[in-house]
Design a protein around this nucleic acid. Sequence first.
DNA 1: AGAATAAAGGAACGCTTGATTGTTTCCTTG
DNA 2: CAAGGAAACAATCAAGCGTTCCTTTATTCT
Lengths: 254, 254
Amino acid sequence: MMHEATPAATTLTPTMARTIGSNGARTAEAIRQAGVKLIYKHGYEAMSLRQLAAEVGLQSGSLYKYFENKQNLLFDIVRDHMEDLLGKAEADLAGITDPLARLKTFSAFHLRYHMTRMAHVFIANMEIRSLEDEHRAVVVALRRRYERLLEEILRQGAEDGVFQVSEPKVATYAIISMLTGICMWYRPGGRLSQDELVEIYTGLVVDGATGPGPATAARTLPLEARPLEAAAAQPRDSSTRAKSRAARPKTARA
Amino acid sequence: MMHEATPAATTLTPTMARTIGSNGARTAEAIRQAGVKLIYKHGYEAMSLRQLAAEVGLQSGSLYKYFENKQNLLFDIVRDHMEDLLGKAEADLAGITDPLARLKTFSAFHLRYHMTRMAHVFIANMEIRSLEDEHRAVVVALRRRYERLLEEILRQGAEDGVFQVSEPKVATYAIISMLTGICMWYRPGGRLSQDELVEIYTGLVVDGATGPGPATAARTLPLEARPLEAAAAQPRDSSTRAKSRAARPKTARA
DNA sequence: AGAATAAAGGAACGCTTGATTGTTTCCTTG
DNA sequence: CAAGGAAACAATCAAGCGTTCCTTTATTCT
């Protein structure tokens, strides 16, 4: 664990093995976290096990006490994340029956979850391609179940007449893409708070699900003169906050 | 170019150099296309130059007549794509002044472009992290300019009172994420045609931009009894088509 | 205190990678 | 038809990769 880089003097280096205060469970957790961090930053293929080992303060060979493969490390991270996501979503939705309320709950949950665990989400979305076939099948199945949650909400709402959704599957993909996209640019401590963002995004989702507003009567027509009677934009003061950004992948919109 | 794998008999193999009918420009184009294909399927880091060379029917060393680096190959692909995207978008929007019409045009353009050039788009979105700092800066700048197109449309529409967008920047990210997400699941020849998808997605975008519909009055309230008076879903027959899917990355929702 | 076990070191392996170089062959132009 | 450039081969390099194996040290349990 806490082991310094070998100093220049070769004679002074006592060939150490188990380091003082080392603990299996703690190391395993450290490896997991460092793995998430490095995969997030560099990508799975680009992260070497020597890099990972150095991050934890280990030798690369020692990692194999904690996972079978590099591949299995990725799989464990992604599977655990997907199960956590799915479980927490179901828990949040439990007991709520009204489609509109369920939609808002789902939207808010998804956004908050993605703003809180950006690294995990990012990895789960980007590194699916790096999973071997069997592992990927497991993860895709979990994702399917998650998407079904939203799809069923939309279907139920459309059946009840609350929503105007002609294609629930398409709308599901569209909404999830939109919501997930927040972790491509959101930084904690940014201009807008999590609550404000949840409000904005959920508003967009609900507007999309509940169908055309007043100004959209002739939707498919090519272009017409715009009516100028719409209401003024509602005021919503966004208090500015200090920005403190953490380690980010190169995908950042910096 | 057209060169077979070395046969088993070593003595019979005449040590070939320049192959018959080889042409620089054609090979360059073949390398570019194969590069897009392989990066799309396996990812930039996972694609080896030997793999790429084999795809084109070359020796790996010969590739260096056509690019300086593996890195530069990626950069060329991504930069050219971004410039093409930006240029075509500006061309499509040229002459249109009405914000709503501009929004629809942008949405339709973005969708069609992304449905048509899924591989390029996918690469440009996923492999930005693999670009070196300077290259990434160029690409990010181009992406910024593209995003500004939509942001200005929203801003203008809000100013004119046509749109109800309190946060144009957030709405821009949300909309682009939603639209771009289509290339995560769209397959040509699927159940819905490009035109139908454009209609559905553009409807969602316009609804989101034009603000709350009738059923969304009390938006931020936790949960209330749902009103049952909304209109029935509009009919839209989606003719079923044969599905013919091409080579896809492992990220596919199969 | 001593044995058993847990945790890590450290060296090596086979392999692949991106890249370089010198040579050979084809094509074009005079 | 010969010269020069274009196009590709073929061999090679050092570096880095994931992984294995055995040893060494710390901790825990009788």
